[in-house]
Simulated scan of single mutants.
Amino acid sequence: MNILFAVCGEGLGHASRSTKLAAYLAQHGHTCTFASYGKAYDFIQKQGFPVHEISREVTLGGDDGLFSLAKTLWLSKTVPVSLLHSYRDARRLLKDQHTDLLVADTMYAAGYAAKSLGIRNAFITNQNTFAAAASPDAAYWNYLSRIVQKYLQKVPDIVIVPDFPPPDTISGHNFLIPETEISHYRFVGPILDRDPAAIPCSRETIFASFGGEPFKLPLYTMLREIADELPDHTFEVFSTTPGLPENTGNFQTFGYVPDLQPYLAKSRVAILHGGLTSLMEALSLGKPVVMIIDPYHPEQWNNAKKIEEMGAGIMVLGNTVTKEKLDDAISRALTMTPPDLRQLFTAPDSRETIRGILESLHTS
């Protein structure tokens, strides 16, 4: 098959899991091409895949390290036009690439483009309902949830969820699926490119990667201050955002790294932002997590709630976090023993499951 991946460029979680899947599909004879934008475009290119730039659908904005809905709406005020541009770009690529199948990872216009051309399409997501810690019942989240649920019902031929089936779904609080639509969703498990049991693990560092958006910089500065007061701990920080604090003897920053797993595997604690992809990788290696969640972000809170319920990590609200609170969370996480999830991660390889889904979709 000739497969086009249309990948959301907001954050790197979408690009990370999609490139892992594409590499596996390529090993089985399929041709995979990408369309994306922003930092995800650069990441995919560095992973060695052909990638075309596509118009972004929304632009995320923030203040003082936190997501801002008002700023996002202002920056994305031309969303209808942006969606039309994204639709136009995707439709052109689908035709030019003689695409047999579209896989859209949280890119919506591409699904419409594929449908208009009679091309089968699958949609990868870990969310169909929205809420934030600061405004869980806000009318705008309910409105957005209804729009996305209707889209997922009508546009993609199948919805692929890179998470464990219920009741073990890490992103379970981010889903509301009517009984009549359950068969339309396939919970396949996390998209990993190696067996976690085969990865050597140690307990040497404190790993930190909680987003590359420029408005996250104050949080990295706070972490550097904590590192200065904990000389016996080594902090390894991963972000491609310019302006990170300068390195010290025990605080090392890294830009683009093609594979984060070896660094994560040697950590004692992982400091993350509550995105599903990085949480899954930490859980697969048995690492306790500190989640600096954005109380205005419509996903992180629900993921973090599930992790806390499991006893696998500690949530810190980004709008009230202080150096003292973060320091305390790290200290508590250093003493945690996460639950043994090996039975979940030894389930059938999700990449093989998805390959079967896509091949069946193409021939049906």
Rank of each mutant, 00 (worst) to 15 (best):
A139D: 07
Y140D: 04
Y140F: 15
Y140C: 03
W141H: 15
L144C: 07
R146C: 09
R146L: 10
I147D: 04
V148F: 02
Q149Y: 03
Q149C: 10
Q149A: 15
Q149L: 06
K150T: 06
K150H: 07
Y151D: 01
L152F: 05
L152Y: 04
Q153H: 15
K154H: 13
K154L: 09
K154Y: 06
K154P: 10
K154N: 13
P156K: 09
P156W: 01
P156V: 09
D157C: 07
D157R: 03
D157F: 02
I158P: 00
I158A: 09
V159Q: 05
V159H: 03
V159K: 00
I160E: 00
I160G: 10
V161C: 12
V161F: 04
P162C: 08
P162H: 08
D163R: 01
D163I: 02
F164Y: 14
F164H: 10
F164D: 03
P165N: 10
P165E: 12
D168L: 06
D168K: 15
T169S: 13
I170V: 13
S171P: 03
S171V: 08
G172D: 06
G172M: 01
H173M: 07
H173K: 12
N174P: 04
F175L: 04
L176G: 01
L176F: 03
L176K: 05
I177E: 00
P178C: 08
P178N: 11
P178V: 10
P178T: 04
P178Y: 02
P178W: 04
E179I: 01
E181I: 06
I182C: 07
I182T: 10
H184I: 11
H184A: 14
Y185I: 12
Y185C: 06
R186C: 14
F187L: 07
F187A: 12
F187K: 11
F187T: 13
G189W: 11
P190S: 11
P190A: 11
I191N: 06
L192V: 13
D193S: 15
D193N: 11
D193M: 03
R194L: 13
R194P: 00
D195C: 09
P196E: 10
A197M: 14
A197C: 13
A198Q: 15
I199H: 10
P200R: 09
C201H: 14
C201A: 12
S202W: 08
R203Y: 08
E204Y: 05
E204P: 05
E204R: 14
T205D: 12
T205L: 05
I206H: 01
I206S: 06
F207W: 07
F207Q: 09
A208S: 10
A208V: 13
S209G: 14
S209L: 03
S209H: 09
F210M: 11
G211K: 03
G211L: 04
G211I: 08
G211T: 09
G212P: 00
G212Y: 05
E213I: 13
P214W: 10
P214H: 10
F215G: 07
F215P: 08
K216Q: 11
K216I: 14
K216W: 08
K216C: 11
L217R: 12
L219S: 12
